[in-house]
Computed example of a mutant assay.
Amino acid sequence: MAKDKENTASEKKDKKEKKSKKEPNKVAKWFKDLRIEFKKVVWPTKQTVINNTAVVLAVVAGSAIIVGALDFGFLHLLSFIYTLGK
C-alpha cells in the first residue's frame, strides 16, 4: 500500500512538472501550420481564373435560357389544353 501511495504521489508530481513546462499556444500553432499549408498550395494563374469564370457564366446563362424556354413552352401548352377543355 505504501508503494501505491508513493506511485500515486510521484505520478501527480510528474503531471505537475509537465504542466509547469510552457506548452505552445494552440492558436498560434494552428496559424503557423496554416501558413505552412498555404505555401504548399498551387494557386491558379489569373488567365485560368478568367477562363474558368467565363465557362461558369456561360453554363449558367445557357441553363437559364433552357429553363426559361421550357417554362414558356409548358405554360403555353397548359393554357392550350385548358382552352380545349372549355
Rank of each mutant, 00 (worst) to 15 (best):
K19A: 05
K39G: 08
V56Y: 11
K12I: 09
T48Y: 01
L70K: 10
I65P: 00
F38Y: 14
N52G: 04
E37N: 15
E17L: 12
K40M: 06
G73W: 05
V27C: 02
V55K: 11
F31Y: 13
K18D: 06
L77S: 04
N7P: 01
V67T: 15
K5G: 06
D14E: 05
A54W: 03
E6Y: 12
K40V: 03
A28V: 14
R35Y: 08
V60P: 01
V41S: 04
S63T: 15
W30Y: 15
G68D: 08
I65K: 06
N25C: 09
L78F: 10
P24F: 01
K22T: 10
K29M: 13
K29S: 13
F38N: 15
V67S: 11
Q47W: 03
Q47K: 12
D4Q: 15
L70S: 13
V56A: 15
K12A: 09
E6R: 11
A9R: 11
A69H: 03
K32P: 00
V42G: 02
V49W: 01
S79Y: 04
I36D: 14
F38G: 10
N51K: 12
F74W: 11
A28K: 12
K12L: 13
S20L: 10
F74R: 08
G68A: 15
N51Q: 11
K16F: 04
K39C: 05
T83D: 01
N25F: 05
W43K: 15
W43R: 15
I65T: 11
I81Q: 07
T48L: 05
K5V: 08
P44E: 06
I81K: 06
S79C: 04
H76T: 10
N52F: 07
K21C: 02
G68K: 09
N52A: 13
S20Y: 00
Y82M: 01
I50E: 07
S20A: 14
K15R: 07
T53V: 06
K18N: 04
K13P: 01
A61T: 07
S10Q: 14
F72Q: 07
A69P: 00
Q47H: 07
F74T: 08
I65S: 03
A9K: 11
A9W: 02
A9S: 10
L77N: 05
L78D: 03
K40D: 04
K22E: 08
G62P: 00
S10N: 14
V67N: 07
A64N: 05
K13G: 01
S20K: 06
H76F: 14
D14Q: 11
K22P: 02
F38T: 10
D14V: 05
N52K: 13
G68I: 04
L75W: 13
V49R: 10
F74L: 12
V41R: 13
K12S: 03
G85V: 02
I66L: 12
L78H: 02
N51H: 09
L57N: 10
S10R: 14
G73L: 13
V41N: 07
I66A: 15
K19P: 01
L84P: 00
T48F: 02
